[in-house]
Structures are given as C-alpha cells and as structure tokens.
C-alpha cells in the first residue's frame, strides 16, 4: 500500500473466500495462516481484506494492503494467483 489516502470502501473479511475456495481446496482455507509476500505479516486467511465487487476475488493483506491472493472462476477453470503469498499453513490433526 502506498501512503495515499483512501475513501471508505465495501471490502469484507476473508471468510468470504470460504465458499468460492471450497471448490478447489478440501480444507477450510479461511483458518489457514497466510504469510504476506510483501510485508511478512502472518495471520488467518479470514483476516484478509477481500474485494469482491470485481471481475474476481482480490484478498489484500490486513497489514500492508498489498494483494495476497486473487481468485478468478471462469466457465471452465479456477485461477488462483498466489504470488503475494509466501506460505499458506494448514493445521492438521496428528496422524
């Protein structure tokens, strides 16, 4: 994010990703810990800022505002762009 001022907007939290991403992940992505590739902030995906009044879903870092992931669902494919994510960590039950 730059130092520019911003107007109030209609973003929602990362829980909005749960439904769309359930189509490509078997685990609940919103409880995974994501690490921002821009500022290194970590936290649950549910805390990301999601812009969905757009041609796709855009999830931004709750700390720096940069894009962490983008999801575009076309008629026949799902595109998940994660170049803004260092890791996505899922807690799993011990084997």
């Amino acid at each position: 994010m730059t130092s520019e001022e911003h107007l109030p907007d209609d973003h929602v939290d990362g829980n909005a990703l749960a439904g769309p991403l359930a189509e490509v992940f078997t685990a609940d992505v919103t409880v995974a810990q994501s690490e921002c590739a821009h500022c290194g902030a970590t936290g649950p995906v549910a805390r990301l800022l999601v812009y969905r009044d757009a041609p796709g879903l855009v999830a931004r870092c709750q700390e720096c505002g940069q894009v962490v992931l983008r999801y575009v669902r076309t008629a026949s494919a799902a595109h998940l762009d994660m170049r803004g994510t260092v890791t996505l960590a899922f807690s799993l039950a011990p084997e």
Partner: peptide, 12 residues
C-alpha cells in the same frame, strides 16, 4: 453505473 474495484479507492 456499477462500481467495481480490486482494492481501496484512492483519494487523489
């Protein structure tokens, strides 16, 4: 005139 945006609206 729907408003679509992939991020915050900058005040410029």
């Amino acid at each position: 005139f729907p408003v679509l945006s992939a991020g915050p609206t900058p005040r410029l």
